[in-house]
């Protein structure tokens, strides 16, 4: 228990020390969304979401469950395409390029916008093959040595290498939950994405594993644009520079994390932060 709280505290410290009030606003804008709507069949799930997401910073989406935050996240790399009957309206631009343009290649988009899911989902393959899968399909490595290097550096970046370096050929499903999730992060990093989407990456993990992942997110922020969906306000406060609050399919409020948590403009945001909304 002591160890755990210590870790958490440590994370908070790193976040606090590195947090510059102006950070997250100074950054150039990477992603812009305008009037994004989503329908599942006849049911509308998102109502006109407009938001800007800055480069090399962590943006957190918060809100009660079913508020549409995950749905919006899945719009950013077009994962909603895989759901039957889902329709997306409005525009989302990555570096100015419309990602819903008819001539855009989804495969290429997803190579640029990686994703980490709620439940760790390593493939039933070895640890090495899990990480190597992306580079392999995209043809990123010229030879075996190249691939080895990508795998090892990705595992390192995900902070997993030291723990698994002796058992790279063992199945990834044999790792602990937190390790599996870091493996999934390594797997996403290996493709060399510019944006990483994280859909409640810690919701299936224990507090220690959560703390490690949060630390990792904070490190990754230096090189990647990160969007994280979380149901935990503390987590959003710890890891993000910007926060957007979703409720019932609407984007209620967005801004610097500090402002949102200390000085929310909207009454609903205030209620949520005070724990009055679900």
């Amino acid at each position: 228990m002591d160890l755990m709280s210590g870790k958490v505290k440590m994370t908070q410290q790193t976040v606090t020390t590195s947090m510059n009030p102006s950070e997250g606003l100074d950054r150039p804008i990477r992603l812009t969304a305008r009037d994004v709507t989503v329908h599942y069949g006849a049911k509308q799930a998102l109502f006109g979401i407009s938001i800007d997401i800055p480069d090399r910073a962590v943006t957190a989406f918060i809100g009660p469950s079913g508020c549409g935050k995950s749905t919006f996240l899945r719009c950013i790399n077009r994962m909603n395409d895989t759901i039957e009957g889902a329709r997306v309206g409005g525009t989302i631009r990555l570096d100015g390029q419309d990602i819903y343009a008819p001539d855009l290649d989804v495969v290429e988009l997803r190579a640029r916008v990686g994703m980490v899911f709620q439940k760790p989902n390593p493939f039933p393959k070895s640890i090495y093959d899990n990480v190597a899968y992306g580079p392999r399909i995209h043809g990123l490595a010229r030879n075996k040595a190249d691939l080895d290097e990508i795998v090892i550096s990705s595992l390192r970046k995900a902070g997993l290498f030291e723990e698994v370096k002796d058992r790279l050929n063992e199945p990834g499903t044999g790792l602990s939950g937190g390790q599996q999730q870091r493996l999934c992060i390594a797997r996403a990093i290996a493709v060399g994405p510019e944006v990483i989407l994280m859909d409640e990456p810690c919701s299936a993990l224990d507090p220690i594993a959560t703390a490690i992942i949060e630390e990792l997110i904070d490190e990754l922020r230096e090189n990647y644009t990160i969007v994280i969906v979380t149901h935990s306000m503390q987590q959003a406060a710890r890891v993000s520079q910007r926060t957007a609050f979703f409720h019932l399919g609407n984007l209620i409020e967005q801004g610097k994390t500090e402002d949102i948590f200390t000085n929310p403009v909207n009454k609903q945001t205030q209620d949520y932060i005070m724990g009055r909304i679900g």
């Binding site: 994962m79 895989t82 495969v107 994703m115 899911f117 989407l197």
Partner: peptide, 11 residues
Amino acid sequence: SLRDGAYGLGA
């Protein structure tokens, strides 16, 4: 989730 994982990597 396995399917999503592969799609998410751009497969």
